[in-house]
Amino acid sequence: MTTDDEVAEGDLHGRAMPVLNQDDVDALARAVQPILDSDEAVRRWCTRANVERFLRADRGNLAKATKRLTDTLKWRVAERPETRVCSACINKDLRSHYMNFVGWDRRGRALVYSDIGLAKDKTPSTNAEHCMQVLELLEPNLRPFPNDQYVWVVDFHQFSVYDMNPSVASACLGLFARSYPERLAGMIMVGAPMLFNGLYRAVCAFADPVTVKKVRFVVGPDGKGGGKAFDPVMDEFFDAETKAWLAAEMTENRKRWKEVAKRKSWMAATFAGRGSTHGWWQTLQPSKTKPPEPPVEGEGGHDIRGCESFRACDAFKNVAQAVRSRGAHGALTSRLADLAPEGIPEPEE
């Protein structure tokens, strides 16, 4: 593991500044104490581990860390991100986005998986809002330092010109840098086509250089796209069960695209506890112009919410409970509430 102030390019395992000056940590905590004294929610959120994370993000620069943490605390007071879910997913289309917490890597860091083609919504603001939802669901379930991060696997197999808006990447990366520093361990981009090269160059021009260093390109399970071979990278980061889940998810989306693209919804699956049957929710929310299409089963019982061991862990249960609670009022999700196997919990304080 890298132990210097900086992490080498392509190193998705090392952490910068593993040892911090505790006097500086104390000074940063004191600097934001007035904000914490004024709000119980941010006081609970702003643990010493989070103070250390912001100081680490600015490589020990106390002035920069103070500004970043102060801005984040003020944003949290104004936006209350810990109470929100993606408005597009619960109100407009249950298939608006397909970026979710689905497991762990070998080191116990969270695994976030997204399929760009399955996301129906291309609006920068709501994509950033969905990223916020995912990260807020992760926050209380992350392991202690140095594994308090997530690895983001992004599947590009249906990437198109409709996904070329750099404002989407700008909105999401800006959110990560401002309010969730040192959370992203790395991005594994699977099956990225040549079309993506132009957008990637544009994004690199404004993205945090530290984030750019954390990207790896990997060939898809179908052999398409550029980068390193699929199996060695998956084996490096994930155990056999998680790797098999990722391969099954990506392969199903390629082989059965016309079927699953219309029907897969992580939000609906999480609300109702049904992750291997897709499109059942269309009978509850029929189109005004088309009759509902029949549901389809996942390949070999594949569950889009994650592998079996992940679905048995406390973090999975915590996320499902939080999503049902925070999203119960949605125009669409309110109609799924009675299908949740354990009922809908009371809204969080």
Rank of each mutant, 00 (worst) to 15 (best):
F271T: 11
D239S: 02
E297F: 03
G298Q: 08
P291L: 14
G306L: 04
L284Q: 10
S287T: 11
T242P: 08
D314C: 00
S276G: 09
W281S: 09
K288Q: 13
P345N: 04
R256H: 15
R335C: 04
K228L: 13
P232Q: 07
D235P: 00
F271M: 15
A205P: 07
V260E: 06
T211E: 07
G220Y: 08
T289R: 12
R326I: 04
P232E: 05
W245Q: 06
S309G: 00
G227T: 07
F316I: 00
R274Q: 15
T289Y: 15
V210M: 11
F271V: 12
S334E: 06
Q321P: 00
A322G: 01
L332T: 00
Q282K: 15
K258L: 11
F206D: 02
K255E: 15
W257L: 01
G301M: 05
G227K: 10
S325V: 03
G330M: 10
G306V: 04
A244M: 06
G300R: 00
Q285N: 12
F206E: 03
S276K: 13
A269L: 09
P294I: 11
V212C: 05
W281F: 15
K224W: 08
N253F: 12
P295T: 02
A207D: 04
G226K: 13
Q285C: 14
F316K: 00
R326H: 13
S287Q: 09
G343S: 10
A261V: 15
D208L: 04
V212H: 02
P295D: 01
M234S: 02
M234A: 07
R311I: 03
F217V: 10
D208C: 03
T283L: 09
K290R: 15
G298E: 07
A229Y: 07
T251F: 06
G327W: 08
A320L: 01
C313H: 02
F316A: 01
T289Q: 12
P341D: 10
G330L: 11
W266P: 04
M234H: 03
N253V: 05
E297Y: 04
E236D: 15
Q321L: 12
A312T: 01
T211C: 08
L339R: 14
D239Q: 03
A337D: 08
P291F: 10
H278Y: 15
K213P: 07
T283C: 05
Q285T: 14
H302D: 00
V319L: 12
E241M: 08
G300E: 00
L332W: 01
P341I: 11
S265G: 02
R326Y: 07
A312Y: 02
E297L: 13
A244T: 11
G220Q: 05
D303T: 09
A244P: 08
W257I: 00
T270D: 07
E342C: 06
T333H: 01
T251P: 03
K262R: 13
V260G: 06
P295H: 03
V260K: 08
F271R: 06
A331G: 01
T277G: 05
R311A: 04
R254T: 14
